[in-house]
Simulated assay, not measured.
Amino acid sequence: MTDASGYKILIVDDHAHNLYTLRTLIEKHLHSASVLEASSGREAIDITLEHRDIDLIILDVQMPEMDGFQTASLLKLRKRTRDIPIIFLTAAFKSEEFQQRGFAVGAVDYLLKPIDDNLLINKISTYFRLIAKERALNVALEEKVAERTRELEQARQYLENIVRYMGEALLVLDAEGLIKQANPAACAMLDYPEQDLIGLSIGDVFEEEGDEEAGAFMGTWLEALIRTGALAKIEARFIAKDGSRVPILFSRTAVKDEAGTISEIICIAKDMSGYVRVDDEAAYRARDAGSRETVS
């Protein structure tokens, strides 16, 4: 006796005696299998709509109004029932032509009446084993997908934390130089909430030294990005919301798609307020030294 708990079989035959014989045979050899009965093709279709967990259908071919071939064809049309294995049983259609017709409409087996009890039970047991393997594979696949999803979520959270807590300002631009993302450091440096920065042109909040019209640099900037993919750090200024200038050390990198076209531009800026430029400091020391010599 095979333990078939958790499996559900639909048997379809227009003769009550045949249904009783099939049920008795299945329940005797396949312990705990759940058996549903239908006396017509139409009733079988209605049962599959009500029960969404049918594992196997044993279907008589010769039935009035809607025969087994027509019933199988309708079951295969529906997404929810098209993958349920169907075993045809017949006493009348024994020719190879009819058997091929059965396979053509989606049957997985075609058995002749009178039923060979052992053959039928072995067939059913085989399909149950195949279903069990498929379910086990699906569970393993779902576990792998869930594990990969967790890993990706952890990686995403890790990167978000880096962006959120990094001390440098981060701006992500589209290929036209419009801001599409800003981290908290950038928002604080510019004194804008992120939603107000989104959609602004980089030229609205940035100017290079000696460039009074900040938006004008986009042409040469993009040209250099396309040529090299990145630019070295430059000294520049952020234009804060109140119009004040914040000295920054600024770098920008192009992100390209598979075709080599720029899709995004990543900008990182370090606030240089309070820092003294090396050349200015050297000039100051030279002037200070000259002053001391004069006094001497």
Rank of each mutant, 00 (worst) to 15 (best):
G167Q: 06
D196F: 14
F128K: 03
K256L: 03
V61E: 10
K113Y: 10
A16Y: 00
E207Q: 15
L56A: 03
K94Q: 12
E96S: 12
G243E: 03
I239F: 02
S32T: 01
I265G: 11
P85V: 00
S34H: 13
F88H: 05
D67Q: 07
L231R: 13
R252D: 15
L22H: 03
E50F: 09
A175I: 01
I131P: 12
K28E: 10
R135H: 14
S32C: 11
S32E: 09
G199H: 05
Q99C: 07
L25D: 07
D174T: 06
A230D: 08
D279I: 04
I9L: 03
T2E: 14
G290W: 10
V255W: 08
S5N: 07
L120S: 07
A92Y: 08
M166E: 09
T228G: 11
L222E: 13
I86K: 04
I268P: 13
A92R: 13
E143H: 07
I248M: 09
R148A: 10
T90G: 02
E37G: 08
E151T: 14
M66T: 00
T126I: 14
M63Y: 00
S263A: 14
R150W: 05
T253N: 06
A254P: 05
D191A: 14
R42K: 12
I262C: 10
G177Y: 06
D288L: 15
T81Q: 07
E207L: 14
L197W: 03
E194N: 12
S244A: 09
I87Q: 04
E235G: 09
A230P: 04
R129F: 00
R129W: 01
T48C: 05
V295P: 09
P64W: 00
E293T: 01
T228N: 12
E50N: 03
T21S: 11
R135M: 08
K123I: 06
E208M: 13
M63P: 00
S39C: 02
D67Y: 01
R101F: 02
V61I: 01
T81C: 06
M189L: 06
P193E: 14
E194V: 00
R227K: 12
I45M: 01
E142Y: 13
F98R: 13
